[in-house]
Amino acid sequence: MDLSPRPVGPAPRRRAGNRWWLLVLVATVAVAGFVVTRFLTSAIDYYCNVDEIGVREGCEAGRRLRVQGTVEQGSLAAVAGSTRFAMSFNGRTLDVSYLGDPGGIFQECIPVVAHGRLVGDVFEADRIEVKHSNEYVAENPDRVSGDGADVDGCSQQQG
């Protein structure tokens, strides 16, 4: 039997696919870092309720804020391309001005989050987000006034 060592050939090449997976792994870590960073940045001024402006830490009146409140019934008006309304939370009310149409399902009596700054007594928003509750009610054109949804007198007009 021939037990002499085999001739050594060229070293086997590493599979190129492995390197691609390594790149994907590094990219994934980078994206995860980006996501966390963005979240922490956003969290700094996320969601002050209307009644917390100037009261809670991080909700100082002079800084950029995100303010949560409910659009008051009868306060919605379109003035020279701006949407103006009052939003309230825990008995405190804030006048809001937004240039343009907020979009989404924006309407009276719906909770919203306005992004912007307080200028004088008016909150000048440059972004409006509309919150939706976890209730899913069927649209019913035959619904009569006085059912549970309409007892509080909130209209469902689009803003």
Binding site: A32, V35, R38, G103, V130
Partner: peptide
């Protein structure tokens, strides 16, 4: 987009979900 008025916000639910996906 048709509900909130935006495709994406960096709010807790969306951000943690994106993080879970990336993980």
């Amino acid at each position: 987009h048709p509900t909130w008025g935006t495709f994406w916000v960096w709010d807790p639910r969306l951000t943690t979900t994106a993080f879970l996906f990336v993980t």
